[in-house]
């Protein structure tokens, strides 16, 4: 007779315990002593700027060789941006991890976060389900290859086996058939970027196509074995994501624009990227 009650008690305790232990990451050590904010940012959680990202995000969240523990992230372009925005709102900053495809499909509950900073490229289809901020970062697609691979034209790219990450715009460009001239025949799609890079290391693909800055970060830690040999103009920009139509865009756009205008973001880019994207040669993608 006692056993069923004991089990019920265990279940109740267990469920309660997990309610308390949430998977939020604690705010990293920052020098953000929140002053009286200059803006009322209407956070979903009082006193806290709730940011969502999809780890890993090398050089944007954490500088890769530094940490192996996501809880210890304390640097990175978007990490610093988030802290700055929080400071301007008079809030602490906390971030949580979510899956990338869920983020861009608008599947993250809008009442659980304020904004997403996750190297998300602004796109029409995505804008149907989420709101984007002003673009804070221009990014074209870059091709990371093992040193020694020559890419002088798009035909050279066509001859290679190219790896992409699922649900990215890179994947969309080369596999959807909807972008003139971009379609490649030999594409491998990976659920996460680390797998794509591993495939490149193993020689299963000849190149990895993703936003140039991300590839530059990877090249920087390859000990010279890999390089971003070419990039392809798309005019894409990164934007923060907000829940569709929930008004956060109006609150945060001015703040982000402010960081752009006063050069903060450019300074961050210069600080964290292992190379200047403008040094990577552009290759045209013929639309004919």
């Amino acid at each position: 007779m006692k056993t069923p009650r004991l089990i019920a008690a265990l279940i109740a305790v267990g469920l309660l315990a997990t309610a308390c232990g949430d998977d939020d990451n604690e705010p990293a050590a920052g020098d953000t002593v929140a002053p009286a904010g200059t803006n009322d940012c209407k956070p979903v959680k009082p006193g806290v700027l709730s940011v969502v990202t999809s780890l890993p995000g090398p050089n944007f969240w954490g500088t890769t060789q530094a940490e192996v523990d996501p809880d210890e992230i304390s640097s990175g372009i978007e990490f610093d941006m988030a802290n700055m925005i929080a400071q301007l709102c008079g809030l602490e900053m906390e971030f949580t991890n979510e899956g990338f495809e869920a983020i861009v499909a608008g599947q993250i509950d809008p009442t659980s976060y304020d904004l997403v900073l996750s190297q998300v490229t602004i796109g029409e289809d995505r804008a149907k389900v989420v709101d984007f901020s002003v673009g804070y970062f221009t990014s074209d697609q870059g091709l990371l290859v093992n040193k020694g691979t020559t890419v002088a034209s798009w035909d050279d790219v066509k001859a290679l086996a190219v790896g992409v990450q699922a649900s990215t715009t890179a994947e969309f460009y080369v596999t959807s058939g909807e972008v003139a001239g971009w379609t490649l025949d030999n594409v491998k799609s990976y659920p996460d970027l680390a797998s794509a890079y591993a495939a490149l290391n193993a020689g299963q693909v000849d190149g990895v196509l993703i936003d140039t800055p991300i590839n530059l970060g990877q090249a920087a830690q390859s000990d010279g074995k890999q390089e971003v040999v070419a990039q392809f103009k798309t005019g894409e920009e990164y934007g923060a994501i907000f829940g569709k139509g929930n008004g956060k865009k109006a609150i945060y756009d001015p703040i982000i624009q402010g960081l752009i205008d006063d050069g903060t973001i450019n300074a961050l880019i210069a600080k964290y990227l292992g190379g200047d994207p403008s040094t990577v040669p552009f290759v045209d993608v013929p639309t004919a």
């Binding site: 780890l55 890993p56 890769t64 192996v68 680390a194």
Partner: peptide, 9 residues
């Protein structure tokens, strides 16, 4: 995955 990305492995 995070570690893999940090270490390229």
């Amino acid at each position: 995955r995070f570690i893999n990305n940090s270490r390229g492995t």
